[in-house]
Design a protein around this nucleic acid. Structure first.
Length: 275
DNA sequence: AGTACCACCTGACGGC
DNA sequence: TGCCGTCAGGTGGTAC
Protein backbone atom coordinates (compact mmCIF):
# COMPACT_ATOMS: atom_id res chain seq x y z
CA UNK A 1 0.00 0.00 0.00
CA UNK A 2 2.45 2.66 1.05
CA UNK A 3 3.33 4.92 -1.85
CA UNK A 4 3.39 8.70 -1.73
CA UNK A 5 -0.33 9.31 -1.03
CA UNK A 6 -0.45 6.63 1.65
CA UNK A 7 2.64 7.96 3.39
CA UNK A 8 1.24 11.49 3.20
CA UNK A 9 -1.90 10.21 4.95
CA UNK A 10 0.29 8.52 7.60
CA UNK A 11 2.09 11.82 8.08
CA UNK A 12 -1.15 13.70 8.66
CA UNK A 13 -2.33 10.95 10.96
CA UNK A 14 0.82 11.25 13.02
CA UNK A 15 0.40 15.03 13.11
CA UNK A 16 -3.16 14.70 14.33
CA UNK A 17 -2.35 12.18 17.04
CA UNK A 18 1.18 11.79 18.32
CA UNK A 19 2.80 15.22 18.16
CA UNK A 20 4.09 17.08 21.25
CA UNK A 21 3.84 14.25 23.71
CA UNK A 22 6.64 12.94 25.84
CA UNK A 23 7.89 9.49 24.90
CA UNK A 24 8.12 7.38 28.04
CA UNK A 25 9.17 4.05 26.55
CA UNK A 26 10.12 2.58 23.19
CA UNK A 27 9.33 -1.05 22.54
CA UNK A 28 11.02 -2.87 19.70
CA UNK A 29 9.37 -6.20 19.01
CA UNK A 30 11.42 -7.13 16.00
CA UNK A 31 14.97 -5.92 15.40
CA UNK A 32 14.75 -6.66 11.71
CA UNK A 33 12.92 -3.42 10.98
CA UNK A 34 15.72 -1.35 12.54
CA UNK A 35 18.24 -0.03 10.09
CA UNK A 36 21.58 1.42 11.11
CA UNK A 37 20.51 1.74 14.73
CA UNK A 38 20.41 -0.72 17.61
CA UNK A 39 17.42 -1.29 19.81
CA UNK A 40 19.27 0.18 22.80
CA UNK A 41 20.33 3.30 20.91
CA UNK A 42 16.84 3.92 19.56
CA UNK A 43 15.39 3.60 23.05
CA UNK A 44 18.00 5.86 24.62
CA UNK A 45 17.69 8.52 21.91
CA UNK A 46 13.87 8.67 21.95
CA UNK A 47 13.16 8.42 25.65
CA UNK A 48 12.03 11.71 27.19
CA UNK A 49 11.71 13.39 23.79
CA UNK A 50 8.72 14.58 21.79
CA UNK A 51 7.93 14.44 18.10
CA UNK A 52 7.85 18.10 17.11
CA UNK A 53 7.00 18.09 13.42
CA UNK A 54 6.88 15.79 10.43
CA UNK A 55 8.23 15.71 6.92
CA UNK A 56 7.98 13.36 3.97
CA UNK A 57 10.21 12.67 1.03
CA UNK A 58 8.76 10.16 -1.43
CA UNK A 59 7.79 7.10 0.54
CA UNK A 60 9.83 8.05 3.60
CA UNK A 61 8.24 9.67 6.64
CA UNK A 62 10.29 11.70 9.13
CA UNK A 63 9.43 12.95 12.61
CA UNK A 64 11.66 15.56 14.23
CA UNK A 65 12.82 14.85 17.76
CA UNK A 66 12.63 17.78 20.16
CA UNK A 67 16.29 17.57 21.05
CA UNK A 68 18.17 16.49 17.96
CA UNK A 69 17.77 14.29 14.91
CA UNK A 70 14.81 12.73 13.16
CA UNK A 71 13.00 9.42 13.41
CA UNK A 72 12.68 7.88 9.93
CA UNK A 73 9.90 5.47 9.00
CA UNK A 74 9.61 3.52 5.77
CA UNK A 75 6.66 1.19 5.29
CA UNK A 76 7.75 -1.44 2.83
CA UNK A 77 4.73 -3.14 1.27
CA UNK A 78 2.61 -3.69 4.35
CA UNK A 79 3.44 -0.99 6.89
CA UNK A 80 1.13 1.51 8.63
CA UNK A 81 0.75 3.51 11.85
CA UNK A 82 -1.85 3.18 14.58
CA UNK A 83 -2.41 5.43 17.56
CA UNK A 84 -4.34 3.76 20.34
CA UNK A 85 -4.73 3.35 24.06
CA UNK A 86 -6.32 0.04 24.93
CA UNK A 87 -4.65 -3.26 24.14
CA UNK A 88 -7.52 -4.67 22.06
CA UNK A 89 -7.08 -1.85 19.54
CA UNK A 90 -3.53 -2.98 18.89
CA UNK A 91 -2.95 -4.21 15.33
CA UNK A 92 -1.56 -7.65 14.63
CA UNK A 93 2.02 -7.10 13.51
CA UNK A 94 3.44 -4.31 15.63
CA UNK A 95 7.22 -4.21 15.23
CA UNK A 96 7.91 -1.03 17.19
CA UNK A 97 5.86 1.26 19.42
CA UNK A 98 6.27 4.54 21.18
CA UNK A 99 4.56 4.75 24.56
CA UNK A 100 3.67 8.29 25.58
CA UNK A 101 3.21 9.65 29.09
CA UNK A 102 -0.49 10.30 28.35
CA UNK A 103 -1.12 6.56 28.15
CA UNK A 104 -1.46 6.41 24.37
CA UNK A 105 0.87 4.61 21.98
CA UNK A 106 1.94 4.99 18.40
CA UNK A 107 2.52 1.59 16.80
CA UNK A 108 4.53 0.87 13.67
CA UNK A 109 2.93 -2.23 12.17
CA UNK A 110 4.73 -4.01 9.34
CA UNK A 111 3.59 -7.53 8.64
CA UNK A 112 6.24 -8.49 6.11
CA UNK A 113 9.01 -6.48 7.74
CA UNK A 114 10.15 -5.01 4.47
CA UNK A 115 9.98 -1.53 5.97
CA UNK A 116 12.59 0.31 8.00
CA UNK A 117 12.86 2.34 11.17
CA UNK A 118 15.92 4.48 11.63
CA UNK A 119 17.41 7.61 13.15
CA UNK A 120 18.76 10.19 10.73
CA UNK A 121 20.34 13.61 10.91
CA UNK A 122 17.59 15.27 8.87
CA UNK A 123 15.37 14.49 5.86
CA UNK A 124 17.47 16.48 3.41
CA UNK A 125 20.73 14.74 4.29
CA UNK A 126 18.97 11.37 4.19
CA UNK A 127 17.55 12.00 0.71
CA UNK A 128 21.01 13.03 -0.53
CA UNK A 129 22.68 9.97 0.93
CA UNK A 130 20.06 7.61 -0.49
CA UNK A 131 20.21 9.37 -3.86
CA UNK A 132 16.48 9.97 -3.83
CA UNK A 133 15.14 12.08 -6.64
CA UNK A 134 12.92 15.10 -5.95
CA UNK A 135 9.69 14.37 -4.11
CA UNK A 136 6.97 13.70 -6.67
CA UNK A 137 4.54 16.05 -4.95
CA UNK A 138 6.23 18.85 -3.03
CA UNK A 139 8.04 21.49 -5.00
CA UNK A 140 8.44 19.45 -8.16
CA UNK A 141 8.14 21.96 -10.98
CA UNK A 142 7.52 20.94 -14.56
CA UNK A 143 11.04 21.54 -15.86
CA UNK A 144 12.61 19.50 -13.09
CA UNK A 145 10.17 16.69 -13.80
CA UNK A 146 10.80 16.70 -17.53
CA UNK A 147 14.56 16.86 -17.09
CA UNK A 148 14.50 13.96 -14.64
CA UNK A 149 12.38 11.69 -16.82
CA UNK A 150 13.41 12.53 -20.37
CA UNK A 151 16.48 10.84 -21.74
CA UNK A 152 15.92 7.69 -19.70
CA UNK A 153 16.03 4.61 -21.87
CA UNK A 154 13.66 2.36 -19.96
CA UNK A 155 9.89 2.17 -20.11
CA UNK A 156 7.94 5.11 -18.77
CA UNK A 157 6.49 2.92 -16.04
CA UNK A 158 9.81 1.72 -14.66
CA UNK A 159 11.25 5.23 -15.01
CA UNK A 160 8.43 6.74 -12.94
CA UNK A 161 8.95 4.01 -10.34
CA UNK A 162 12.69 4.66 -10.11
CA UNK A 163 13.15 6.48 -6.79
CA UNK A 164 16.36 8.08 -8.05
CA UNK A 165 14.42 9.77 -10.82
CA UNK A 166 11.43 10.94 -8.80
CA UNK A 167 10.65 9.83 -5.24
CA UNK A 168 7.28 8.47 -4.19
CA UNK A 169 5.76 6.64 -7.16
CA UNK A 170 5.30 2.88 -6.79
CA UNK A 171 3.67 0.15 -8.84
CA UNK A 172 0.04 1.12 -8.13
CA UNK A 173 0.30 4.84 -8.69
CA UNK A 174 2.51 4.55 -11.75
CA UNK A 175 -0.37 2.60 -13.29
CA UNK A 176 -2.86 5.27 -12.23
CA UNK A 177 -0.81 8.19 -13.54
CA UNK A 178 -0.23 6.47 -16.89
CA UNK A 179 -3.90 5.54 -17.16
CA UNK A 180 -4.96 9.14 -16.55
CA UNK A 181 -2.35 10.34 -19.06
CA UNK A 182 -3.49 7.68 -21.56
CA UNK A 183 0.05 6.46 -22.02
CA UNK A 184 0.90 2.79 -22.47
CA UNK A 185 3.21 1.66 -19.62
CA UNK A 186 5.78 0.16 -22.01
CA UNK A 187 6.39 3.35 -23.99
CA UNK A 188 10.04 4.34 -23.73
CA UNK A 189 10.61 7.46 -21.65
CA UNK A 190 12.97 8.97 -24.21
CA UNK A 191 10.30 8.93 -26.93
CA UNK A 192 7.96 11.29 -25.07
CA UNK A 193 7.29 14.72 -26.54
CA UNK A 194 6.90 17.99 -24.69
CA UNK A 195 3.13 17.77 -24.78
CA UNK A 196 3.31 14.24 -23.34
CA UNK A 197 5.33 15.57 -20.44
CA UNK A 198 2.88 18.40 -19.84
CA UNK A 199 0.04 15.91 -19.89
CA UNK A 200 1.89 13.46 -17.64
CA UNK A 201 2.80 16.19 -15.18
CA UNK A 202 -0.78 17.46 -14.95
CA UNK A 203 -2.18 13.96 -14.58
CA UNK A 204 0.29 13.15 -11.82
CA UNK A 205 -0.72 16.34 -10.04
CA UNK A 206 -4.38 15.41 -10.23
CA UNK A 207 -3.73 11.83 -9.10
CA UNK A 208 -1.93 13.10 -5.99
CA UNK A 209 -4.63 15.62 -5.15
CA UNK A 210 -7.53 13.23 -5.64
CA UNK A 211 -5.93 10.26 -3.91
CA UNK A 212 -4.85 12.29 -0.90
CA UNK A 213 -8.31 13.88 -0.71
CA UNK A 214 -9.69 10.34 -0.71
CA UNK A 215 -7.44 9.48 2.23
CA UNK A 216 -5.59 7.09 -0.10
CA UNK A 217 -8.63 4.82 0.12
CA UNK A 218 -9.42 3.26 -3.28
CA UNK A 219 -13.14 3.13 -2.44
CA UNK A 220 -13.24 6.89 -2.02
CA UNK A 221 -11.43 7.77 -5.24
CA UNK A 222 -13.03 9.35 -8.32
CA UNK A 223 -15.03 7.10 -10.64
CA UNK A 224 -12.55 7.49 -13.47
CA UNK A 225 -9.64 6.06 -11.44
CA UNK A 226 -8.18 2.71 -12.49
CA UNK A 227 -6.93 1.96 -8.99
CA UNK A 228 -10.01 0.10 -7.68
CA UNK A 229 -10.08 -1.95 -10.91
CA UNK A 230 -6.58 -3.41 -11.04
CA UNK A 231 -7.61 -6.88 -12.17
CA UNK A 232 -8.16 -8.64 -15.47
CA UNK A 233 -11.68 -9.45 -14.25
CA UNK A 234 -12.46 -5.72 -14.18
CA UNK A 235 -13.29 -3.27 -16.93
CA UNK A 236 -11.89 0.14 -17.77
CA UNK A 237 -13.76 2.89 -15.88
CA UNK A 238 -13.52 5.08 -18.95
CA UNK A 239 -14.37 2.89 -21.98
CA UNK A 240 -15.63 -0.27 -20.22
CA UNK A 241 -13.20 -2.38 -22.20
CA UNK A 242 -11.22 -5.15 -20.50
CA UNK A 243 -8.33 -4.27 -18.19
CA UNK A 244 -5.08 -5.97 -19.17
CA UNK A 245 -2.10 -7.14 -17.14
CA UNK A 246 1.48 -6.63 -18.30
CA UNK A 247 4.87 -7.46 -16.79
CA UNK A 248 7.31 -4.57 -16.82
CA UNK A 249 10.69 -4.89 -15.14
CA UNK A 250 9.31 -7.77 -13.13
CA UNK A 251 6.30 -5.85 -11.79
CA UNK A 252 2.67 -6.48 -12.70
CA UNK A 253 1.09 -3.45 -14.23
CA UNK A 254 -2.54 -2.98 -15.23
CA UNK A 255 -3.76 -0.78 -18.04
CA UNK A 256 -6.50 -0.32 -20.63
CA UNK A 257 -5.26 -1.33 -24.11
CA UNK A 258 -8.00 0.76 -25.75
CA UNK A 259 -7.29 3.97 -23.86
CA UNK A 260 -3.52 3.55 -23.61
CA UNK A 261 -2.16 2.84 -27.06
CA UNK A 262 1.48 1.97 -27.46
CA UNK A 263 1.64 3.21 -31.01
CA UNK A 264 0.58 6.82 -30.70
CA UNK A 265 0.34 8.32 -34.12
CA UNK A 266 4.05 8.46 -34.90
CA UNK A 267 3.00 7.76 -38.45
CA UNK A 268 0.51 10.60 -38.37
CA UNK A 269 3.35 12.95 -37.51
CA UNK A 270 5.52 11.51 -40.28
CA UNK A 271 2.72 11.76 -42.81
CA UNK A 272 2.23 15.38 -41.83
CA UNK A 273 5.89 16.03 -42.52
CA UNK A 274 5.70 14.27 -45.85
CA UNK A 275 2.60 16.09 -47.01
C1' DA B 1 21.91 2.67 -18.10
C1' DG B 2 18.90 -0.96 -18.49
C1' DT B 3 16.79 -5.64 -17.26
C1' DA B 4 16.52 -10.32 -15.12
C1' DC B 5 16.72 -12.80 -11.25
C1' DC B 6 17.22 -13.69 -6.41
C1' DA B 7 16.62 -12.33 -1.65
C1' DC B 8 14.37 -10.45 2.29
C1' DC B 9 9.52 -11.78 4.98
C1' DT B 10 4.49 -13.18 5.82
C1' DG B 11 0.09 -14.56 4.34
C1' DA B 12 -3.68 -15.41 1.04
C1' DC B 13 -5.33 -18.14 -2.60
C1' DG B 14 -6.02 -21.81 -6.03
C1' DG B 15 -4.98 -26.49 -7.59
C1' DC B 16 -4.37 -31.13 -6.43
C1' DT C 1 -7.29 -31.14 5.61
C1' DG C 2 -2.75 -30.33 4.01
C1' DC C 3 0.93 -29.39 0.86
C1' DC C 4 2.76 -26.66 -2.92
C1' DG C 5 3.47 -23.07 -6.15
C1' DT C 6 2.40 -18.33 -7.05
C1' DC C 7 1.50 -13.83 -6.03
C1' DA C 8 1.41 -9.32 -3.38
C1' DG C 9 1.46 -2.14 -3.69
C1' DG C 10 8.68 -2.29 -0.79
C1' DT C 11 14.03 -2.20 -1.83
C1' DG C 12 18.82 -4.02 -2.63
C1' DG C 13 22.44 -6.91 -4.65
C1' DT C 14 24.52 -9.33 -8.53
C1' DA C 15 25.19 -10.70 -13.11
C1' DC C 16 24.70 -9.69 -17.82
Amino acid sequence: MPELPDVEIFRRYLNATALHQEIETVRVHHDRVLKGVSKATLQRRLKGQELDQTSRHGKHLFAALSKKGWLMLHFGMTGFLRYFQVEDKKPGHVRMELLFTNGYRLAYDCQRMLGQVSLVKDPYTFAEKEKLGPDALEGLDFDTFRTAVSGRRGSIKSTLMNQEVVAGIGNIYSDEILFQARLHPAILANTLKDKDFENLYQCMDRVWKESIDAGADPEAMPDDFLLPHRSEEESCPRCRGPVKKIKISGRSGYYCPRCQKKDRGQRTDDSKKQS
